[in-house]
């Protein structure tokens, strides 16, 4: 289980970033008082436009960055005080996570298994399962520099899952994937959920959210604007589909005055 309690995160912008964003302030609050719980056996989706704060939230949960305020509890462990223990129990996959081009899939898989403190036999057992699930066996001994982007993405996923984490976090899981790879990824996420894992994903694609997620948190300008099951959100807004519901909530969130 993952408990996110009132987390906020502010970044200091460089001059270049300020110019790019047209920002007047040196500071940008990416996430404001975000709270939600994700339970074992469910896929929780953070749905929002680009720059809404989805990735920052996921990176905070994954302990890559620390929230300025609030608390994150992963499987009963405080991510702020015991980040290493948290990392033993979760994995993060984003498009930013790349594989070293100088090594084969097999070597990298075993390398990361060792870094997770796994025994050689356990690594081999996980290799069998994951290489099978993502069809990596055929290119297990190919250097990643010689792989297609789809192959690399599959390998990244397999590497992230090497230690069989209780909590799986995927940032935009189907981004940049071909239709077949995307399907194998979403199928595997469902399988993880069915095996009692806590899965949190972020996406800006409505169909992915609708088909994959058991519950959704609609995140806009760093805040959770609405939360519930896809059906519950449709009911709450009275919209025909998630697309309309999203824009309805987006409009309403714009009408709420800023607290700061």
């Amino acid at each position: 289980m993952v408990e996110v309690k009132n987390i906020s995160k502010t970044f200091r912008l460089g001059k270049k970033q300020m110019a790019l964003d047209g920002a007047k302030s040196k500071f940008r609050t990416a996430v404001r008082n975000v709270s939600f719980n994700a339970f074992p056996g469910e896929i929780y989706g953070l749905l929002g436009p680009n720059g809404a704060g989805k990735t920052t939230t996921l990176r905070c949960i994954s302990t890559l960055i620390k929230p300025d305020e609030g608390e994150i509890i992963v499987e009963g462990i405080n991510a702020g005080t015991d980040s290493r223990e948290v990392r033993k129990r979760l994995c993060l996959l984003t498009n930013d996570l790349k594989t070293d081009p100088n090594f084969t899939a097999d070597y990298l898989f075993r390398f990361f298994g060792r870094l997770h403190g796994m025994a050689q036999s356990d690594i081999s057992a996980r290799r069998e399962i994951l290489f099978d699930a993502f069809g990596i066996k055929e290119f297990a001994n190919v250097k990643t520099s010689d792989m297609s982007s789809g192959m690399k993405q599959k390998l990244s996923i397999a590497i992230s899952l090497v230690h069989d984490p209780r909590v799986v976090i995927f940032d935009e899981p189907t981004n940049g994937l071909d239709i077949i790879t995307a399907r194998s990824v979403t199928d595997y996420l469902k399988e993880l959920r069915d095996n009692g894992r806590t899965v949190i994903i972020s996406t800006h694609i409505m169909t992915v959210a609708e088909k994959l997620c058991d519950r959704l948190g609609l995140i806009m300008e760093g805040r959770i604007a609405a939360e519930g099951t896809p059906g519950g959100i449709l009911e709450m807004t009275g919209a025909k589909d998630l697309d309309d519901a999203f824009f309805d909530i987006y409009r309403k969130s714009k009408e709420v005055p800023d607290e700061e």
């Binding site: 890559l64 996570l97 594989t99 990361f112 870094l115 997770h116 590497i159 992230s160």
Partner: peptide, 9 residues
């Protein structure tokens, strides 16, 4: 590629 390593315990 370093982020993958930073995600390990």
């Amino acid at each position: 590629t370093i982020a993958t390593m930073l995600m390990t315990p």
